[in-house]
Simulated scan of single mutants.
Amino acid sequence: MRALRLTAWGEPATPTEVERPVPHGTEVLVRVEAAGLCHSDLHVIDGAPGALPYRLPFTLGHEVAGRATALGPDAEGVTAGQRVVVYGPWGCGACDRCAAGRDNYCDRRDTLPWHGVGLGRDGGMAEYLLVPSARHLVPIDDLPAVQAAPLSDAGLTSYHAVAGLRDALGEGSTAVVIGVGGLGHLAVQILRATTASRILAVDVREDALALADRSGADFGTLVRADTARVLRTRSGGAGADAVLDFVGTDRTLELAISILRPGGVLAVVGSGGGRLTVAKPGVLPPGFRLSLPFWGTRPELAEVIGLARSGAIRVETERFPLSAAPEAIGRLRRGQVRGRAVLVPD
């Protein structure tokens, strides 16, 4: 079968012919129908030797949806032919958190040579994917795979981030989304579907603000010298109750802190390398809370799929055949992808 594999750090991923896996034990073979492309894939491709615990080579792709086609003799909880999305942050499978479907916060995560499917383990940028257990599969029924695949990270991570600050987003509250890309546009929709907050969006691109508007934001603005003042005014003067930063640079973190009201909460989702200094006294608002969400839980993924099937959220996607993965990766690097890039088998 064809697969897009990382064979050397800092080098482009290589289209390769590999043997189709055969499931054993509890394993499930999934015929891939769609695989999302994420900035995390770029971070992995560009990684310096030793920066990540992953062992080369492996197939990329951590947002995967498809159809279970073959089951190991001990596989339970899925039937052959069932359409599924893959829960990506595979943990040790033995600790209490993994048992509860919270592999994203596995107690042994720091000791594992992988972070999940396509992140140190073979992923879904291939024709088939071998999943170690059906516990990593969530049914999608009739939801199109091109929609389901990005929901397993872009949707799940955004949902998990919003869930962590939902207690601050009651009636009359304001939430600010910084960075309206693959995750940010879903965060806007999830905020609209699950909270009563006023939603303000910030980006450096006009087309991203148009995407925010289509996703249900109440107001959008470009980053300018007066952005903090504009956002404070739009929030009623007191500032935002919550900020979700999907960029994570020094500049966006500074903006986030400048618009939070006392007791506000900041969720930093983007991995832009920014730093925040915690000092008391200092510039942080009194009562400030910080969240560093990582992916999400398996039960939350089922909830995200439910929202999508109800029509409450929809991923804006650009489709590419698997053979055009290098083109899609290049466009993602240049910031030319609208919403989420999704690879589909040729």
Rank of each mutant, 00 (worst) to 15 (best):
R55G: 05
D142Y: 08
R289W: 06
G239K: 11
A308D: 04
P113E: 13
R109V: 12
T297L: 03
E316T: 15
S323E: 14
R108Y: 10
P21G: 14
H160F: 12
A34V: 10
L183C: 00
S173L: 04
G330Y: 02
G296W: 01
A256W: 02
D142H: 14
A149D: 00
S323M: 05
R108F: 09
D203G: 07
F58K: 12
L266K: 10
V180C: 05
V22I: 14
A279W: 06
D346V: 03
G164W: 02
W9Y: 14
D103A: 14
R331A: 06
P326K: 11
G116S: 12
H62Q: 08
R83Q: 04
V269E: 01
G172R: 10
H43I: 04
L222Y: 02
D250P: 07
R334P: 09
S310R: 13
A240E: 12
L52Y: 14
L284I: 12
G287I: 07
L211S: 07
R214N: 03
A208K: 00
G274F: 11
L129E: 07
L119E: 15
N104I: 06
V84M: 06
Y128W: 13
G311S: 07
L200D: 12
A212H: 09
R108H: 14
G72Q: 08
L6E: 08
D207S: 14
L156E: 02
V78M: 08
V30R: 00
G25Y: 07
L6F: 12
F58G: 13
L42M: 14
Y128T: 15
V64F: 02
D346R: 03
R251Q: 15
L130G: 06
S235M: 09
T69R: 05
S291E: 15
V243C: 13
H115E: 15
V180T: 08
L29H: 13
R198P: 00
D110M: 06
G182T: 00
D41M: 06
D107I: 07
L6Q: 13
F294Q: 14
G77F: 04
L4I: 15
L129T: 05
V247D: 07
A225C: 04
A302W: 03
L112N: 09
F246R: 02
E303W: 00
P113S: 10
L156A: 00
S271F: 13
G306H: 02
V117K: 05
L119T: 11
V223N: 03
D241R: 08
E127F: 02
P144W: 00
L112W: 11
A94H: 15
A145Q: 04
W90A: 10
S310C: 06
P150V: 10
A325F: 12
V265S: 12
L129A: 05
R102Y: 09
A325G: 10
A201L: 11
I329M: 15
V84E: 06
A308S: 03
G47S: 15
D96F: 04
T195M: 11
V117N: 08
L129W: 06
